[in-house]
């Protein structure tokens, strides 16, 4: 690992971590505009995080080390995951150390810790959130694996940079498997990021909440880290979708500053487009009942399976 590639990785993580609050702010701003409110500035999340970081910490009497360690573990995992998903360039130093399955498992570890933290204070809300979060994961994980499978069948690898390079090297074609796998991944991403219709990121004090229920007892800097981790996670999923299905614009030649600038520019553009699409989607749809999640994520699983079946059919035909 040369010094240059190390610096590149640091810049890469730094960029994702730095723009993550902006993406969340952007989604909120667009949603506010769509519902004819003025809404806070897209930069509000930065101010919120700074405010939280300066506050005191209040710990519930019964909590153990799990509760205290979770915010740091969560943040570290999301930042690590940001090292692994190519955004503006596929040439990353750390990316070869793991693949798509490892990435899914790392996010699983984050969820495991957060669900435990939800149960640590010994309240009913926390347990409720943990239980539902794990249910969603149970339903989403098989669908996610089907996406991994179909990607691996096309690109013959599960290493993310190689997938991006594979897609870049082939002309953009419309293939039904691609559409199905992409749709499945979008549904999984909505569920994993606690977005409507699975969860509502803006509700508090309601029985519908999942993610917010688990983090009810968090305060101050701990809460800031968890919020930041959630923001990075949303950015990561957008970057992941872009890397697998639309890596165009990524800088493969790092010696040319203009190419790199173009890569960063298209990356930010992709984030803006995805954020707008998410806001439009969330404005137009209502939250689901908990026991309709299986239908939603079952659809994702089915689409993933169909993507694989069509790929097999395609192999036979050609």
């Amino acid at each position: 690992m040369t010094l240059f590639s190390l610096a590149l990785d640091v810049a890469h993580v730094g960029l994702t971590v730095a723009v993550a609050p902006l993406l969340t702010g952007w989604v909120r701003w667009v949603k506010a505009r769509l519902t004819l409110r003025r809404g806070p500035s897209p930069f509000q999340p930065y101010r919120d995080l700074r405010r939280l970081l300066r506050k005191d910490i209040v710990l519930a009497d019964s909590v153990s080390w799990v509760f205290i360690a979770t915010p740091f573990v969560l943040f570290a995992i999301m930042a690590l995951a940001a090292c692994l998903v190519p955004t503006f360039t596929p040439s990353l130093a750390l990316a070869p150390t793991s693949d798509l399955i490892t990435l899914v498992a790392l996010l699983g570890l984050a969820r495991f810790m957060l669900a435990l933290a939800g149960m640590d204070a010994g309240t009913s809300f926390g347990g409720l959130g943990s239980s539902r979060e794990m249910l969603i994961a149970t339903l989403a994980e098989p669908a996610m694996l089907m996406v991994v499978f179909s990607v691996a069948l096309m690109a013959h690898t599960t290493a993310l940079p190689n997938v991006a390079l594979f897609v870049l090297a082939h002309p953009p074609v419309f293939h039904i498997s691609l559409v199905l796998a992409l749709s499945a991944l979008v549904l999984v991403a909505l569920a994993e990021n606690a977005r409507i219709p699975i969860d509502n990121p803006t509700t508090h004090l309601e029985l519908t909440m999942v993610h917010e229920a688990m983090i009810l007892e968090y305060t101050g800097p701990h809460l800031a880290l968890i919020e930041a981790a959630a923001m990075i996670k949303l950015t990561l999923y957008v970057a992941l979708i872009a890397c697998l299905f639309a890596p165009w614009g990524m800088a493969t030649d790092l010696s040319d500053a203009r190419v790199v600038a173009l890569g960063i520019g298209t990356y930010l553009g992709k984030l803006a487009v995805a954020g707008t699409a998410l806001a439009v989607f969330e404005t137009g749809i209502a939250k689901m009942r908990v026991f309709r999640y299986p239908e939603f994520l079952g659809t994702a699983l089915l689409m993933g399976l169909l993507a694989i079946v069509f790929l097999y059919v395609n192999q036979v035909v050609s």
Partner: peptide
């Protein structure tokens, strides 16, 4: 980062909030 930024913040124990 948290140590530096939250330098003056203190940690207290209390009953769980639970909404």
């Amino acid at each position: 980062v948290v140590r530096v930024l939250a330098g003056r913040a203190c940690v207290r124990r209390g009953p769980a909030w639970d909404c």
